[in-house]
């Protein structure tokens, strides 16, 4: 995984709540398992006509957002199926940051495995971004979102932050400590729940 660096980018304002992973990557693409190349399927049914031509009014098809790395959206983003393909598609398309008032649990967790930063901030701030902001600076190190008339702090678990900053996924990180884990397991006593 690449190290997560400071990002300055045009935002893609996508004011929709409860966007489920079936919309992020429709089922017909689940059979494919290469992690790269999923970007072309992102929001497929919203983005393309049935003949494959782009839907002009869909936000990702508008040229001002074509290089955007920041998706700003609404509550409960990523709900539904646990498919990790949803994060693969967002990342492959070019999004490294997703800002929303809340995320679905499995999706939130999947983001960190793939170098995507999900930022949970209040609905109020998301509304301000929708209203006033075209570009944001995301500084993970200092946990800030900065833009025109906006400077907000966001919360993130410290270990998750560190992993993104250092570009470590948690499997790689843990496997580096395999010897210590084996020793611990040998010595640990797991009590029974039925006592």
């Amino acid at each position: 995984m690449e190290k997560f660096k400071k990002i300055i980018s045009v935002i893609t304002p996508f004011d929709k709540a409860n966007v489920d992973t079936d919309q992020i990557v429709p089922k017909q693409f689940l059979k494919l398992i290469q992690k790269v190349g999923f970007g072309k399927y992102l929001f497929y049914n919203w983005r393309f006509e049935s003949d494959g031509s782009p839907k002009k009014d869909f936000i990702l098809n508008q040229s001002n957002y074509s290089n955007s790395k920041i998706l700003v959206t609404n509550e409960n983003f990523g709900c539904g199926s646990s498919r990790e393909h949803a994060v693969w598609a967002l990342k492959d398309y070019g999004f490294s940051v997703i800002i929303a008032p809340s995320f679905a649990d499995i999706f939130y967790s999947n983001c960190f495995k793939n170098g995507v930063l999900p930022i949970e901030i209040s609905r109020n701030i998301v509304e301000r971004i929708f209203a006033d902001i075209t570009e944001l600076e995301i500084d993970l190190e200092n946990q800030t979102i900065t833009g025109n008339n906006i400077q907000e702090h966001f919360d993130i678990q410290s270990d998750k932050k560190r992993r993104l900053l250092e570009g470590l996924d948690d499997i790689a990180l843990t496997m580096q400590s395999k010897n210590a884990i084996d020793v611990f397991e040998k010595n640990s006593n797991t009590p029974s729940i039925f006592n």
Binding site: E84, I106, S109
Partner: peptide, 14 residues
């Protein structure tokens, strides 16, 4: 509970 692919891979190994 359900997990994503990476988490499942992790549990399988650890």
């Amino acid at each position: 509970c359900g997990l994503g692919h990476t988490d499942i891979a992790y549990v399988l190994l650890n």
